[in-house]
């Protein structure tokens, strides 16, 4: 027994990296994650912290006053209220229409495409083989003159551009639905329409939620689409266009503050959206 203990201690004294690596699930996990983690810390977390710092500073001419101040926040909430709201609305509408138009396509591919699923999925990604700029330009060319410089034009352009981002996640969640569940619903008396609302739709909600967030979050900060479609007219400006202007006029603290305010707004909007959708799905039973 004593000899056994002695052997154990000596083995424990020489921890081998290989053995520890094999034993510990967590260590293996972190090793796998480490390149991404490093990139995220350097490229995302650190800049975010810097941005947050800047938002409490003040640009005075060419000098940066690093005394703590909330003046930027006051300025943003007073001045850019309309643009912030417009960005929210445009992104929300774009997300809504993309999902509304994408759902039937995803449904068709998941339930009716049968042997041609692969071809459909390739076809859906074909638009991405062309540059985004070209696609927005092309859309601008075919748009009626009076539509071009309106928020509606931006919504249309975004809906068109993000279609695949709605279709793919919804397709995946529809594809995952066990077809026996639909048979069970039919067996319990439901026709096609009721089956859709009581089974298919609630079970595809994860796809709908990820599609909506996937579109809503990036589009709210879109800069290219409003400036190309709107041709630089302030009526179509979204928050990113404002930030770009602030950076151009060398007011980094104000730009940082605007970005942070819009991030907070996105977070709040997504939270309420997901909560509302969950509540809605509970009423479908």
């Amino acid at each position: 027994m004593a000899a056994g203990t002695a052997v154990d201690t000596s083995a424990a004294k020489k921890p081998s990296w290989g053995a520890a690596f094999t034993r510990s699930e967590a260590l293996r996990g972190w090793t796998l994650l480490s390149p991404t983690t490093i990139l995220m810390v350097v490229g995302l977390a650190a800049p975010l912290v810097i941005m947050l710092l800047y938002s409490f500073w003040k640009q005075e001419g060419l000098t940066l006053n690093t005394d703590f101040t909330l003046a930027n926040y006051a300025e943003v909430s007073g001045k850019y209220y309309t643009v912030l709201l417009r960005s929210l609305w445009i992104a929300a509408l774009a997300a809504f229409f993309t999902v509304l138009l994408g759902y039937p396509v995803a449904y068709y591919v998941a339930f009716h495409a049968k042997n041609s699923k692969f071809i459909w999925l390739i076809l859906l990604t074909i638009p991405f083989w062309t540059s985004y700029l070209l696609r927005v330009f092309a859309l601008r060319v075919i748009m009626p003159e009076e539509l071009r410089a309106t928020p509606a034009a931006v919504v249309i352009a975004l809906t068109h551009a993000w279609a695949a981002f709605a279709i793919l996640p919804i397709y995946v969640s529809l594809e995952k639905i066990d077809r026996t569940l639909l048979e069970a619903a039919a067996d319990l008396g439901d026709g096609a329409v009721r089956r859709f609302w009581r089974i298919t739709f609630p079970l595809s909600l994860p796809g709908v939620v990820s599609a909506m967030t996937l579109i809503f979050v990036p589009t709210i900060g879109d800069y290219v689409t409003p400036s190309l479609i709107g041709g630089g007219k302030p009526a179509t400006f979204m928050i990113a266009n404002i930030i770009q202007g602030q950076i151009k006029s060398n007011d980094w603290p104000l730009a940082a503050t605007t970005a942070i305010v819009s991030m907070i707004m996105v977070a709040i909007a997504v939270y309420f959206f997901v909560a509302a959708l969950k509540a809605a799905s509970r009423s479908l039973r």
């Binding site: 066990d178 026996t180 048979e183 069970a184 039919a186 067996d187 319990l188 026709g191 799905s281």
Partner: peptide, 30 residues
């Protein structure tokens, strides 16, 4: 006559319990 109009009910091999509903709502479904 489609399945939803027949006086039959089925117990499936995989049970096909609706995963988004609890026991009560599963049983109350029909």
């Amino acid at each position: 006559v489609p399945a939803n109009k027949r006086p039959t009910n089925m117990v499936f091999q995989s049970y096909a319990i609706f995963p988004h509903l609890d026991v009560y709502d599963n049983v109350a479904y029909g």
